[in-house]
Every structure is written in structure tokens, then in C-alpha cells.
Design a protein around this nucleic acid. Structure first.
Lengths: 349, 349
DNA sequence: CTGAAAGCGCTTACAG
DNA sequence: CTGAAAGCGCTTACAG
């Protein structure tokens, strides 16, 4: 007694409907309400009923219909990974990959799907704001380091739980975030450089409207003072977290302070550019000029020479971002989590 | 007359519900059915009603609730981007970024959310299969080049529309795919090398269980024959699409055929490794040994020297993958789309 | 502890 | 062309 297939039926329509809560209820000899209670954690359910339902679920291969659930619960079970950096950075910087990978994994462990959203321009930002504010997403993992990002405020206004990667700068509202201890990491690197006998230590900073840009420079300054080394503006150049930006900044440094014997570069990608600039200038690394990076990104082991750097604990950062977001979603107040970094010594310093 | 906020209300619950189809209907003075018909494309709706509804939508700021829609339509409006490559490759190879970025953009233009899924091992694959087969996804963009990937068959079995990037090898079922013209691209590169005066042209291939590995080698062989150059097994080494794999394969080539004066490397990442191997061996590029890559990946302009390579049209590939998938979802039969490549001449050859 | 019932927001035959 | 009504699969007070 098979029904004739309707003409032009879309490929997406399944021939046989997957089992519903109704099938499970019948199979287990209980009501749909009881099945639902089991699904919600099994509270207020007798052991016998619980067992019967679980067995029925197994037999039928039941999987909850998330659309139905989201509809009645008035919220989505998915999480957005929202990237608001310019797209070249996303292409170039392996850190984004690592973070995206880590968050996908951490969410998968909670069986939560990740929606990738990239907001490169204002129309995109508006579209995405509308989508998220429409309640299609349970929470947002926000990657946007530059100060004054309009998305932070818009999402907060829409009452969507948000956790940022890195402390959002220039925001009036308090937002939960996870960050590595940038300042302490910078201090470790400068101490390492000094311990290796360097005295004229320059730095290529990140953009000064990003937390990493500000904090790593602060750590550099503090440690210089602590070590009794003078702070010299000629020894500081600002980069933009790109490889070519790092190369250019290092070239400026070399022109301003030809006698430098070490440079702390605020990201590995920029440090790779610094290596190129030094080679171009005929300086050997590390013999003439030692180079220290930041991130321990996937490129660090394969630069020439391999990069001494500060490891950001990306897996832990991902885990904590997801943990904080789930906490926010279930009503907890925002919190900040700062994770320790680690010096990784290779050949460049 | 504000209600007291219930204690412990989850942050995700909105204070004021977004407008529903019901609000729009009331505002426009029509029934909910008519509003829905307008939403579905405005067929069988009088111009007056259509206008009234559209105005009401604008006034209320109505956005369709996708959960409700998916529930009643029995299918999801989202698309999965499914990655089944080993994760190191995802970290290292910028092509994945470019493709992911392109697909996110192309889907965004259709207002379709992208779910990122990474299946690194069998438990993951099972979990993801269950999720997708559960109907939580309207279709799948599959990135998996290695032959015999179990996901292809499982997804086809689950009757989920699939479009692959690159021709899936060793599958019994026919699956839609989009690919660059690997063979023709390889031919262009070998011709270019020969035109530059090279006679002992080696090649580092991709894995021979991937379409790119097989096709680019085939193009190499054909062109050698066409040019009257002998095919010499000592001139061929297999790589694994990683930078270090390319370096190792090139070192083998150098040992087997010390007199080679050019090498066609089947990916830019491996070509970067090849550059390192050559430099280690004291060979200058391009003076002693010319190097041609494949991909025109983001790293190509910044290798040393900048890489001459074959451009894969990633934006078009993304567009076509999304177009094909949408066609599949609306019931069309699978198709294959082959896109032309382009020689990009820089300094390495 | 458990069942019956209402309702989440939408789409779609079915009559008119 | 249009409205009333049923129903998608689930959750959750409300009675018992």
C-alpha cells in the first residue's frame, strides 16, 4: 500500500519520516509527555517508565526534532561563530583556523551546531544582526579585536548571550570574554631576550586599538623598566597583524635604531615578516638580531629559522569560550577568563 | 504594567517577542494564510493584498521564524560545510579558508546559514551522519578529496543533497561536484616550463588517491609526450599536500635526478616546501631549477621567490557549488561542473 | 509520577 | 483571490 510519489517531489523530502516522540511513546506504552520528560533529563519519571522510554528510543532510533524543540522553547540550540575581522586577515592568519577548529570541537562535544558568519562590511553586519536578533541563534562567539566594533553593542541590545575572544575595547556594556594573558606573555619574552644577553630590544606592536596590541606593548615597557633598560620610542613600531605589515614595521625599526639586537614581535605572522626584513637587511637571525614572536601559531615551527614565541593556549581558549557561553545562555552573569601563556624556545631567539 | 521578571529566567528569553505572521496579518487586515502566501512568493495574491502585507511587514519589522517554517516544511534551510580532511591540512592549507569563505559568502547571498562540521575520526563521522540524516540540514557541501570516503555513501543513503569539491573517487553512486580543470592546468604549467627552455622537468604529485593527484600527473605526462620529452619515473615523486611533504618529495627528486632543471609541484603549499628543499641543496630558483605550483593560494605571492602557479578560481568554485546544491535541493539531478584554470606567472618559473 | 491538552509560528490543501 | 482549519513535533503547566 505505498502511496504514489507526488510528481516533482523535492529531493530533500524523505521517503520515510524519521520516528517522532509519538512513535516512541507508543512503543514504550506511555504518553508523549512522559517521553518528553525523559528527554529533558528524566526528572519526575518513574524508573520503570524511564527504562521503557530509553529502550524505545534505542529501538526506534529516535532523534529529537530540533526545529520543533526550538519553536516551543523559543530559542535556538545553535551557536554562531562571528568573525568581524577584515577578510584578508582571516585568509592569512592561521590563528583563526585554530580557534574555529577548537570552537567547533568544543561545541560538538555538547552536540551544538556551529553557524559560521563573516561580517566584512556594514550590509553584512546588518543582515547578520537581523538574523541573530531574530532569535535564530542561542548565543554568539565573537571574534573581533578592534575597538569600537558596533556588533558588540547590537548583539547585547538584542539580548543575545555573547562571549568574545579577547577583551572588547571601548564598550560601555560589560561582555564576557576569554583571553590569554597578553601582558605576562610579553614580559616572559622580553625577559628571555634579556637573559640571552640582548640590550637593545625593539618591538613591533599590534594595532593600538586591539587588546593584544596594547597589552603586549605594556608588558614590554614594564619589563624594560624592571630590567633597568631605557624605553626608547625609536625602538617601537606599530604593525597590523599581517605578514607584510610586520616586514614593513621591522624595516622602519632598522632605520630608526640600526643598533638593535633583538625584536619582540606581537604576532607570529608579523614575526615571519620581520625575519624577511632582517634577511633583506643582511642581518642574521638570531646571531645579529634575535626575534621573538607571539601566538605559537602553526607557522612558527616552519619559519626560517623556527620561531621562538609565546604560546596562546588555543584549545583551552576555545573550551572556555564555549563553557562561558553556555553559562551565559543558562542565565549566568558575564565573566572574564584570563589564561596563562607559555614561552616556547626554538631557534630565532 | 510590566510583569515581574521571573526568577532565574534564562538570558536567552527575549523580553518582548518578535512580531509573528499573526501581527502582520492584523496590521494588514488580512488572514495569516494570505501573509504566508506573500512570503512564499506572492502567487495567488491580489496586488492590493500584496502591497498591504509588504507594508505591514516593513512596519512591524517582521522576520520569518525559521524553526516554525522548517517544522512544517519538513526540511531545514541551512547547509552544512563538511570537512573530512585530516585537521592538520585544514590548519595549514589556506585553500580551505578560501573555499570556506567563498561558500559562506555565496550562501549568505541566498540568506542561507552555513553550519561548519569537521569530521576528523569515525565517532565524529557517526555523530555528524546522525545529525544530517536527522533532517537538520538542507544539503551538504562536502570537502573530502581522498578516495573511498564513507561519508559520501552515507549521505547519499540518507537522501541528503550533496555537492562535492573535486570529483569524488571510488564512489558507486553519482554525486554532483565542482572542480577546476586539473589536467588542463597541469598541461599549461608544463608547457610554460618548456617554453622557458627547461628540458628535465620533474613533478611532485598529490596523493594518488585524490583527483588532483591523479589528474595533474596525467596532464604532466600527456604534455611531456606532446612536447617530445621522455617520461622518466626518476622525475616523479608523490607528496601529501603538506609543506613538509613537498620538501621531502623534492629532496627525493633531487637525489634521483640531480640534473633536473624544473619541477611542477601539484600544490602551492608543497611548492613552498620545494623552494626550501632546493635552497637547502644549494640550487637557485629559478636560475638552476624553476618551480611551478598549483592553486594560486594566498601564500603564493609571498614565498621566496614569489610562486608562478596555476590559479584555481575559488570564488567561482564556491558559487557553482552553492548553485548546484540549491538545484539539487529543489529536485534537479546531479551534475558536474569543471572550471578553467589560469597560469599566473611570478618569479619562480 | 503521569496523561490530556494547549500552544509555539508557520504552511497548505480545502472550500468558497 | 482569500479565510478557516488542520497539522508539523515538541514542551509544559494543569489536574489527577
Amino acid at each position: 500500500m505505498t502511496e504514489p510519489a507526488p510528481k516533482g517531489r523535492p529531493a530533500a523530502t524523505r521517503a520515510h519520516r524519521p520516528p517522532t516522540i509519538h512513535d516512541v511513546a507508543r512503543e514504550a506504552g506511555v504518553s508523549r509527555g512522559t517521553v518528553s520528560r525523559v528527554l529533558q533529563g528524566g526528572h519526575h519519571v518513574s524508573p520503570a517508565a524511564l527504562e521503557a522510554v530509553n529502550a524505545a528510543i534505542r529501538r526506534t532510533g529516535y532523534v529529537v526534532n530540533r526545529h520543533a524543540r526550538s519553536l516551543v522553547m523559543q530559542r535556538s540550540d545553535s551557536v554562531a561563530f562571528l568573525l568581524t575581522e577584515p577578510q584578508e586577515l582571516f585568509f592569512e592568519d592561521p590563528n583563526f583556523n585554530v580557534l574555529l577548529r577548537g570552537c567547533t570541537r568544543a561545541l560538538a562535544e555538547h552536540d551544538i551546531p556551529l553557524l559560521l558568519m563573516i561580517a566584512g562590511n556594514e550590509p553584512e553586519r546588518r543582515r547578520i544582526t537581523r538574523y541573530i536578533a531574530g532569535g535564530h541563534v542561542g548565543g554568539v562567539l565573537l571574534v573581533s579585536s578592534h575597538s569600537g566594533n558596533p556588533m558588540v553593542e547590537r548583539l547585547t541590545e538584542a539580548e543575545v548571550p555573547v562571549v568574545a575572544c579577547g577583551k572588547p575595547l571601548g564598550q560601555r556594556t560589560r561582555v564576557a570574554y576569554v583571553a590569554a594573558d597578553d601582558r605576562e606573555g610579553a614580559r616572559d619574552m622580553v625577559r628571555h631576550l634579556r637573559a640571552a644577553g640582548r640590550r637593545r630590544i625593539g618591538t613591533v606592536t599590534g594595532p593600538q586599538d586591539t587588546p593584544g596590541g596594547v597589552e603586549r606593548l605594556a608588558g614590554y615597557r614594564e619589563t624594560l623598566a624592571e630590567l633597568g633598560l631605557p624605553y626608547d620610542e625609536q625602538l617601537v613600531a606599530e604593525g597590523d597583524y599581517t605578514r607584510s605589515g610586520g616586514e614593513a614595521a621591522t624595516a622602519r625599526l632598522l632605520a630608526q635604531a640600526p643598533d638593535l639586537d633583538a625584536v619582540f614581535v606581537a604576532s607570529d605572522l608579523m614575526a615571519d615578516g620581520a625575519l624577511t626584513a632582517l634577511q633583506r637587511a643582511g642581518r642574521r637571525t638570531p646571531e645579529d638580531v634575535a626575534v621573538g614572536g607571539f601566538d605559537d601559531s602553526p607557522i612558527a615551527p616552519s619559519t626560517r629559522p623556527p620561531l621562538t614565541t609565546i604560546r596562546q593556549p588555543w584549545d583551552r581558549i576555545s573550551d572556555e569560550m564555549v563553557r562561558l557561553l553556555l553559562a551565559r545562555i543558562s542565565g549566568e552573569d558575564p565573566a572574564a577568563v584570563i589564561l596563562p601563556t607559555e614561552l616556547v624556545v626554538r631557534d630565532s631567539a
